[in-house]
Each structure stands twice: as C-alpha cells, then as structure tokens.
Amino acid sequence: MSFLKLENVCKSFGGAPVLKEVNLSLIEGEFVAIVGYSGQGKSTLMSLIAGLTQPDSGTIMLEGKPVTGPGPDRGLVFQNYSLLPWLTVAENIALAVEAVFPAFTPAESAAHVAKYIAKVKLSHASDRLPAQLSGGMKQRVSVARTLAINPRILLLDEPLSALDALTRANLQDEISQIWQSDKKTVILITNSVDEALYLADRIIPLTLGPGATLASPITVDLPRPRDRIALNHEPEFKRLRAQITAQLLGYGAQRKQTVSRKLVLPDILPEDLDAPRVKRPPRRPSEEKRELVITN
C-alpha cells in the first residue's frame, strides 16, 4: 500500500485550472523531488498535500486516511522560513513542540528543542532572534522546527531557492544526512535539476499550466551517499541531467508566443553623445539594410 496517494486531484482558482488530474504515489521512506517552472502550481500542490487548501475533485490519502486539513503528521518547510520575528530560535521551535506534544514537561520540551537545534548545527545561536540570523540559518531553524514535531512526511517547498549557491550546497548535505538518519518520507519541490538529482530517489517533472500535471516519474538510480564531485563522473548522472533538463526546457518552449510579425531594424548607428548635438540625418552604416521576419 502506498504511503501517500493522490488520485485525480484537480484544483482551480477563480475558474482557471491550476492543477489537473494529478496522480502521485509514494512509498514510505522515499525521497521524491518535483521539478518545474515558477508559477505552475508546485506550491499549490504542496498546500493540497499539507491540507492548507482543499482539492476541487480527487482524493489525497496519507497512510490510508483522507487528508482534510493541516496536521502535525505532515511537516511543511516554506521558502520564506516563516519564523516569528519576536521569538528566539529556541522559542520558535518550542512553540511548535508545545502545540504538538502537550504532555511534555518544560524540561522535556527544552531538551527536545535543544536536540533538534543541535541537529541543524545551530546550538550556538539558539538565543538569537531571526533578524540576527543569515538566510541559511533561518532556513535551518525552519527545518529544525519541522523535524521537531516528528512528522510522518516532510514537505519541502523550495526550501533552498532563496539561498546562495554555497549555503545551498551545505543545506542540501544537511537535508541528505537528516533524511538518511531519520528515513522520513520526503517530497521536495525545486526548480534545480542538480538539487533533485543529488537528493531524490525519484524525480517527477511538473508540466506547464494552465492545468499542470505530473509527468512520468524518473527513477534516480545513483548510489548513496552521493558525492557532488564523484557524481560528475557518473555516466548515469550526466544522462539524467541532460534528459530532465531537455524535458523541462521542452515544456518552456511550448509556451513561447506563436505570433509572427514583421519587424524592421533600421540601419542607423548610435550617435556619440559626448560630441555636441547636431541636426542632421542619422548616421547609417555602409552595409545593406537588415530586415527580417521573426516567428517566435
């Protein structure tokens, strides 16, 4: 039986279809990456699984039970961190822990929070406010908060997209390590093929909207633990990287305008603005006039 199952899920906003007949099936402990363009409904899909919005039709089942609203069995990590600015790192995490584990004594709660702060290597910063943290550190707090409520499935909604390349690589390593030690089921949404190939067991491209849906999954058969440098030598990595990139760019090519119009580029040269302005016809190069019809 699949752990998470989406069947014919459709969602539209104001009559405009966003997602159409989305089918997805995950087994427990699997790491799945969904790759697609911005604005095509990736985050809508995440909100549906998290229970923050309801599908127009179709069903979402987690461990055999239908998803009807948000719950601590699904942990969501947002791109924008979503930390409360007036609470410290420890207080932000404690807020979630106390809501999910009301039976904890204050000491148990504090120990639990400290354990997860240590897991994302932020013990030195547990008394800082979010404003005193870098983007990468904020995202680590957000990951720690999600892990601390011990969800059945982790939903990562472009968690690393706002970070620079170096911080991004470090956090990818941390996510990979956490996933390997905890063996949680993970859905990662990303726009980076490299990130997906580095982390996931399966990659599912999202087609272009309106009415986007999931394309056939691609199995990433690369040995773990994965090493960024070693992957460069892996023929399978190169093949998948080229294949998935081409597939996604193919979707992008479809949405190009199909209008064709005649464009004229006048054969004139720019003026030297340092020279005094004169009234005279424009300077023209000696070569012949360029004129062409563009069809995009």
Binding site: L273, R277, P282
Partner: peptide
C-alpha cells in the same frame, strides 16, 4: 537619446 537624429518611427 542615442538615436536622437533618427525619426520617431525608426
């Protein structure tokens, strides 16, 4: 600015 000698159309 740069093509100030050219016509509006151009």
């Amino acid at each position: 600015q740069v093509y100030y000698t050219a016509s509006r159309l151009e």
